[in-house]
Design a protein around this nucleic acid. Structure first.
Length: 273
DNA sequence: TAACACACCTGTTGGC
DNA sequence: TGCCAACAGGTGTGTT
């Protein structure tokens, strides 16, 4: 389940493996994943060079000669590069064959991933239309702006952090982790948070994402990076997936409930509603 | 406009 | 052993 740290790790691998390659052929097996015109998608990508691969939130951006290709991995999307022979796999949905005969493949068991092909310079407008919040880094993520946004909503804090408008990159795993670190119950209304709690939460978001990136992300189910390697952040998770285990802080049994349809882990002692 | 429910999708898991 | 329902969850869309 790629969240920002996993996407960043994939980006790094893709940038290393594909920059400088020129696309010679595109095969799309699942057209519905292409959100712009699938025919134009196949035609326009031919002869395009991959200049670099960047990231905005959980989106990957392939910077091409004349276009910007925006890719979202959603739940289980992953990229694989084959230098020659390609094994048969029913979950391989998109193929880019390069000038050196290597092939980049997009694999996605659930077919949730999306692709948007934009003209050069239009990616920014695409992200603006999605109302994406700042990156969870000190330079972008202003605590005062964060505080003002929280004060305007009665939504449970977990759901607000998941919706990508206050800050990008958090998914179900890291939201549970940062709320545990900040000792905030996931169901707390956003506008009930005190200044000190917001400061701690703000720092927990930055620190958790930074640590996760340095560990290559978390491999919970099927995630692997573009080099086929697993991350190690799952060894540093304190609460996600630990239902019934002792809280590392107070030894109380960790509980799991549903919030917004998502499995939600919390310590009933440290994170009081 | 905000809040919420549900659809998308398929492999895995647990209960019977 | 086999069947079936529940579950996993990021995002878009529809409803209230």
């Amino acid at each position: 389940m790629p969240e920002l740290p996993e996407v960043e790790t994939v980006r790094e691998g893709l940038n290393r493996l594909t920059s400088g390659k020129v696309i010679k052929k595109v095969t799309v097996r699942v057209p519905k994943m292409i959100k712009t015109d699938p025919i134009l998608f196949q035609e326009n990508l031919v002869d395009q060079e991959i200049l670099s691969v960047s990231r905005r939130g959980k989106y990957l951006i392939f910077h091409l000669t004349d276009y910007e290709l925006i890719s979202h991995l959603r739940m289980e999307g992953k990229y694989l590069l084959f230098l020659d022979d390609i094994p048969e796999n029913k979950h391989f949905h998109l193929f880019w064959t390069f000038n050196d005969n290597s092939t980049l493949i997009y694999q996605d068991v659930r077919k949730f991933g999306t692709f948007d092909l934009c003209d050069k310079g239009e990616a920014e407008a695409f992200f603006k239309s999605k109302k994406l919040g700042p990156e969870p880094i000190e330079a972008d993520f202003d605590v005062k702006v964060f505080k003002d946004a929280l004060a305007k909503s009665r939504k449970p804090i977990k759901l607000l952090l998941l919706d990508q408008t206050l800050v990008v990159g958090l998914g179900n795993i890291y939201v549970d982790e940062v709320l545990w670190h900040a000792k905030i119950h996931p169901k707390r209304p956003a506008n009930s948070l005190k200044q000190k709690e917001i400061d701690v939460l703000h720092q927990a978001i930055i620190a958790t994402i930074e640590l996760a990136i340095s560990k290559g992300g978390s491999t919970i189910r099927t995630y692997k990076n573009a080099l086929g390697k697993e991350g190690s952040m799952q060894e540093y998770l304190r609460i996600y997936g630990k239902t019934g285990s002792s809280c590392p802080r107070c030894q109380e049994a960790i509980q799991k409930s549903k919030l917004g349809g998502r499995g939600t882990h919390f310590c009933p002692n440290c994170q009081v509603l």
